[in-house]
Design a binder for these strands. Structure first.
Lengths: 189, 189
DNA sequence: TAACCCATGTAACCTGTTACATGATTAA
DNA sequence: TTAATCATGTAACAGGTTACATGGGTTA
């Protein structure tokens, strides 16, 4: 098991036991996650983790709703997660369709590029906003638990990433607006 | 065809016609690329692009070396690429195994986390260095062609991303070194 | 003489996406 | 009554990784 999804699930359930359905939401709709997966993938991975006895579940009966399975991490799962944290992998190679588009920006009208760029720009700004909203909630707590402090740290990473993208979009849009000779700005070069 | 790999190939070949073997190097070993793929994937995608008549190749005989196929983009391929650039997609959800690890940092010794973090930190610093090396070469040219200006822009994105990661790693290492109450720094919050 | 570079592929496998499937409750 | 939420899955397919395959030339 080399892939990250099972570990992402173990980590999520370690912080808060929940159902597969809840995991889908935490992975795809919430800000506090740095992995994503479809519900099909998640149910499949949960079934496999259960076969490996790294998670176990308790069936919870509900009124007016389908029953659900609440998963928790077993001792074996916890150990697997711990040893994975100790392993150090290679950083993921950057994969960005936006940058591919920009790399051949000269084959389309500037207006087209600006429009495409703006859509990405707006999305990054929104993502930043939601990161910052949660971040501020953390910052208001006078003494965070060690667990919360780690969650806060991952949020900080998300914020920095979005800020980097936003600043770059602005640089790119400025460049497209007034195409002059490119020079190395002292602050980032 | 929705995925980015074929477009990444079209873009690369648009900027510089080359063989599949060369593409592998440009995708995986060079700094000027924002996509990656194995040679198996690339040869497969090239064959498919050829079937779609978006690329064509010329067999080049070589002395003392295997022959090679030099691919170029057809008019049809160029049009496909152009219309793809005009499409605006959703930004990719952040997927980071390092952040998953940090999110459950409390279940391992701080020393383990620091070691893991440092490996990522060093890699980001090296990547930044190579980006900056190429970036400086661009900056020395007094009047870049429009094509080169776009390449330069993508490099700038790479630099900003790496700087963001590096700054965050330093923040995280500082936090792990001296675990105190977390507060919102004014510069990034 | 061993390892690496050039150059191109096939095959098996695993991961991830899209489509299909069910069925009750609740809000517009 | 239409759509959305809750809740869990199966199946087909596309994308990506790993292993296997070939073979000459160059460098240590």
């Amino acid at each position: 098991m080399r892939m990250s999804l099972p570990y992402a699930i173990l980590a999520a359930i370690t912080n808060q036991p929940c159902s597969g359905y809840d995991l889908v939401k935490r992975f795809n709709k919430s800000v506090e996650s740095f992995w994503s997966a479809s519900h099909q993938q998640i149910y499949k991975a949960l079934a496999q983790l259960e076969r490996l006895e790294q998670v176990s579940f308790e069936r919870v009966e509900q009124r007016n709703r389908p029953n659900k399975k609440i998963y928790t991490v077993t001792e074996e799962g916890r150990q697997a997660l711990q040893s994975w944290i100790g392993e150090s992998g290679a950083i993921a190679p950057t994969k960005s369709d936006l940058l591919i588009k920009l790399s051949v920006g000269h084959i389309v009208p500037t207006e087209t590029l600006l429009q495409t760029l703006d859509v990405y720009y707006q999305q990054h700004k929104e993502k930043l906003k939601s990161f910052q909203t949660v971040s501020k909630q953390y910052a208001q707590v006078p003494q965070l638990s060690r667990e919360s402090q780690f969650n806060y740290l991952t949020l900080r990473a998300g914020i920095r990433q979005q800020l980097a993208w936003i600043a770059w979009c602005e640089e790119a849009m400025g460049f497209l607006g007034q195409p002059v000779a490119v020079r190395e700005p002292s602050s980032v070069g």
